[in-house]
Design a protein around this nucleic acid. Structure first.
Ligand SMILES: [Zn+2]
Ligand SMILES: [Zn+2]
Ligand SMILES: [Zn+2]
Ligand SMILES: [Zn+2]
Lengths: 144, 144
DNA sequence: TGCTTTTTTGAACATTATTTTCAACAAAGT
DNA sequence: ACTTTGTTGAAAATAATGTTCAAAAAAGCA
């Protein structure tokens, strides 16, 4: 598994783009950060390192990272697009506590397989999916 | 299964709200309409019947319908909240063509069961889920 | 290295979807 | 009719994101 920085460099090269300190910084921050960061949250962290970086650059770079396959968009259903690293770890889905927002990553191969099957049954070729499970975590269940 | 209009009336009553011609009209249009309508699309149809109805009223009423359990929000991942009737037919998920947007409703009981299981395994109580499968429909596959 | 071309950046402004404010209005209760 | 309370439409406010544009920085070349 290639490290994200070289993936990004190659992507940059391949598309005649340029490597800049801003892009470097944003990638660094993105990789070190907690998962599921919105652009705005990332922006806050980025400006701690370099207050001169603009909001738009963060949006633009996240889009880039997404195109390069380094970041993956996740949509929890509020209007905010979040990103998570996509290359290192494999695919997963999300199990989210409706009360406290705690969010864990889950994977069930049997579900994955059935999703394929289901699409095939309708004569579609499956290219991806998103699945979010909502519930109550043990902590919030006790608390109420 | 109660018809949506009486469900709505009861909801209105129960919450000390008032039944108005606008709400009536919007519910009517919503129920007759194709599925997965965005507020804005619905607004266009509504104003054909009564051009005086305001945009905000449509937003407000859809929210109401959602609270009343008559409409259900669906999120396809573009920034738009869509609604579909929720009382008549049972739960389903969505299979969406990435190329032409065609969207069919699907259901696989085995997946539904495994989702329960998966949540339980992590000690969550599942309250709901959303699952969207993305792919290419037969038509778009041929077309390319 | 200096010069040229092309891409990038930040700031401000534009957009899109949705919400809120508020004065005029309409329904229900008396 | 009179009062109270919820509702409406228009316009302004928000929130997330996209775009424009002149200035700055890279990369390519001399
Ligand atoms: Zn919780
Ligand atoms: Zn389902
Ligand atoms: Zn298609
Ligand atoms: Zn549906």
């Amino acid at each position: 598994m290639k490290d994200p920085k070289s993936v990004f460099s190659e992507y940059i090269e391949r598309n005649n783009l340029k490597m800049t300190p801003q892009r470097h910084l944003i990638l660094d921050v993105f990789l070190k950060t907690e998962e599921h960061m919105a652009s705005e949250e990332l922006y806050d962290v980025v400006r701690e390192h370099d207050p001169a970086v603009g909001q738009a650059t963060v949006y633009r770079t996240l889009k880039l990272l997404s195109d390069a396959g380094i970041a993956r968009e996740v949509h929890f259903g509020d209007g905010v697009t979040r990103y998570e690293p996509s290359q290192s770890d494999q695919h997963h889905d999300h199990l989210i506590c409706e009360s406290c927002g705690t969010n864990i990553e889950v994977l069930d191969e049997r579900i994955e397989k059935l999703q394929e099957e289901l699409a095939t049954k309708h004569d579609y070729v499956l290219t991806g999916h998103s699945m979010y499970l909502y519930g109550l975590c043990p902590k919030c269940r006790k608390g109420s």
